[in-house]
């Protein structure tokens, strides 16, 4: 596994991409983390209120666990990981091998369109990180 050396520039670019794609579309919070649960970027209106460290660690573990579940039923990985609540929903997306994008949004935002945007953003962020 490669060590990340993050520059402020990469992080800025990633943050801008997330803000313009997800936050402006009404997503409450978007967290970019790595597979070990470290937070790379934390955007959105609720970003200061949630316990991001715990969320990131659990999300990383959650994705790891789900991909194990996938393997148990003969899948490589699941393409959609989403939890629905009464007022809030959370969507997890993999970005390449190492990164995870967590998106938290309310009832008024459609999952389908969040998925579209996340898919598009995934490519953008990959390009940013791969230079």
């Amino acid at each position: 596994m490669q060590d990340f050396i993050l520059t402020a520039e990469i992080l800025d670019k990633a943050r801008t991409a997330i803000e313009s794609s997800l936050i402006q579309a009404g997503v409450r919070t978007a967290l970019l983390i790595d597979g070990a649960g470290n937070i790379l970027s934390n955007c959105g209106q609720d970003s200061q209120e949630i316990d991001a460290i715990s969320l990131a660690a659990l999300a990383a573990a959650n994705l790891g666990a789900t991909s194990q579940i996938a393997k148990l039923i003969g899948e490589e990985d699941f393409s959609l990981l989403f939890h629905k609540g009464k007022n809030g929903n959370i969507h997890f997306g993999r970005i390449g091998e190492e990164l995870i994008l967590i998106t938290i949004f309310g009832e008024e935002v459609s999952l389908g369109l969040v998925r579209c945007r996340v898919a598009e953003l995934t490519n953008t962020i990959l390009q940013i990180f791969e230079g």
Partner: peptide
């Protein structure tokens, strides 16, 4: 892998 967040 240690994460070094240079922005912060």
């Amino acid at each position: 892998m240690a994460l070094i967040d240079l922005s912060k």
